[in-house]
Amino acid sequence: MYWRGHVGIALLAYAPVAAAVRVAGEPGLAVLGAAVAVAFATVPDLDHRLPVAHRGPTHTVGFVVATGTVVAVAGGLVFPARGGINLLASGGSALPAWTPVFAGGVATLSLCSHVAADAITPMGIRPFRPLSTWHVTFDLTPAANPRANRLFLGLGVAALALSVALTP
């Protein structure tokens, strides 16, 4: 997949989470989560700029878990859990103290969606490297298919919009 497809699939994966967070009374957290989902949707493809094979170490379960953990820990260090995080300077409600863990979870979900999206291409992935050479490919569409990438982006945006529109 290309960036449009990855962003769309990340939003598609995040849409039910956004709805749940909104139902829980945290609309600010839902917005933050959408931003995190989009920001991390293409992170594994940074391997194009690194001296590693494409769809190598950055497309593994280990990378996903490690990166999600780093996001949660870094968020906890930047925003200590003292009564929540107030990102809105003028009287806005504070985000809950568990926001860093939520951000780490959404980053992990977004990274998982990236790896899953690459599994539908002919090139596939090896999600458990270096522990296993098991190769996964569903060979549904080439990564460069512009229709598939636009379709996934549209589905993701629509799913997120519906999840927001249909929740109180």
Rank of each mutant, 00 (worst) to 15 (best):
P168H: 14
A74H: 06
A24R: 11
S110N: 00
V61G: 01
V36A: 02
T137F: 06
G76F: 08
G56T: 13
R150K: 07
A161M: 04
G62H: 13
F63Y: 11
G62N: 09
T58S: 11
A119H: 03
P96R: 05
A34E: 02
V70K: 04
P16R: 03
D45M: 03
V78L: 14
T141A: 13
I9K: 00
A148K: 00
A41N: 02
R147T: 12
R147E: 03
S110E: 01
V71R: 03
R55C: 06
V36M: 03
L87G: 11
F102K: 01
V52L: 02
L46P: 02
A39R: 03
H48S: 02
R129G: 00
F63R: 09
P16I: 12
L140K: 01
A18I: 15
W134Y: 12
P100T: 09
A94P: 10
G76E: 07
A144W: 12
G75N: 09
G83V: 14
T58N: 08
V31D: 05
L88K: 05
A13K: 04
D139P: 01
G92K: 15
A30Y: 05
R82M: 09
L12I: 02
S90I: 03
G154F: 06
H6T: 05
L111H: 07
P51I: 02
F138S: 00
D47M: 05
A158H: 02
T108G: 10
F40I: 12
D139K: 14
G33I: 14
L111I: 14
A143W: 08
T133R: 14
V101W: 09
A103H: 06
A10V: 15
S110K: 01
A30L: 06
R126M: 06
A19T: 01
V38I: 15
T99S: 13
V7W: 10
F102M: 13
L11F: 12
T137P: 05
R150C: 02
T137H: 07
V157N: 03
P51A: 12
L95Q: 07
P130F: 08
V31Y: 06
H114G: 09
D47L: 03
H6Q: 10
W98R: 05
G76T: 07
V115R: 12
R4M: 07
A34I: 11
L77A: 10
G8F: 09
V52T: 11
S132E: 01
T137R: 14
A39M: 09
P168R: 15
A107L: 10
A119F: 06
T67K: 12
G56W: 13
A94D: 07
H6A: 07
T99R: 05
F138C: 00
D139S: 12
A74F: 07
A41H: 03
G75T: 10
A24K: 03
G104H: 10
S113G: 15
V101G: 03
D139G: 01
P44W: 10
N86V: 11
T141W: 08
P130S: 06
R129E: 04
V21M: 14
A72K: 08
A165I: 07
A97R: 13
A107E: 05
G156L: 14
R147K: 11
L29E: 06
